[in-house]
């Protein structure tokens, strides 16, 4: 999932990150369900990936692409789940800066995230917001 990291100071409204391809596998889902003590029966019968696991991987690919300063706080998160994802499906995560606002000694950064499957259908859409200290 590696991609070139950009300093958050260089981000501006509308900036689009390089799309990232990923594939949630059985090992990832097992570790995820163990971490959250999730109900394996709900997903296991149909080999489904929990939607928040897909969201977590999309968030990780976005976080890998930005250099955030110490003191950054993840303040809010929105997600809409639009379709189920099966294990080993090929997904692509898209991220875009929706808002970057200076407020006193802080920046408010809001990033839109969309995840599509191999049929180009959206499976998750969301928005994540951070407060960052001004350097």
């Amino acid at each position: 999932m590696a991609q070139q990291e950009i300093d958050y100071k260089e981000l501006s409204n509308g900036y689009e990150f390089t799309p990232v391809d990923f594939q949630p596998d059985d090992k990832m889902v097992t570790a995820y369900l163990s971490a959250i003590e999730g109900d394996k029966r709900i997903y296991g019968e149909n080999k489904l990936v929990p939607p928040m696991a897909v969201a977590a991987l999309a968030m990780a690919s976005m976080a890998e692409a930005i250099s955030l300063p110490p003191g950054t706080i993840h303040v809010s998160q929105e997600f809409q789940f639009l379709g189920t994802v099966s294990i080993n499906e090929s997904l692509t995560s898209y991220a875009r800066v929706n808002r970057k606002i200076e407020r006193g000694k802080f920046h408010m950064l809001t990033i839109e995230i969309n995840v599509t499957n191999q049929n180009n259908a959206k499976v998750i859409t969301g928005e994540t917001s951070f407060i960052l200290p001004l350097a």
Partner: peptide
């Protein structure tokens, strides 16, 4: 936040997985 999704899945099952919406 994953606990919230598990909470909703246990109450609403497949409907949450295919049409859930959260603001946290």
């Amino acid at each position: 936040l994953a606990y919230v999704s598990e909470f909703m899945t246990s109450s609403f099952g497949q409907s949450w997985l295919t049409g859930g919406n959260l603001i946290a």
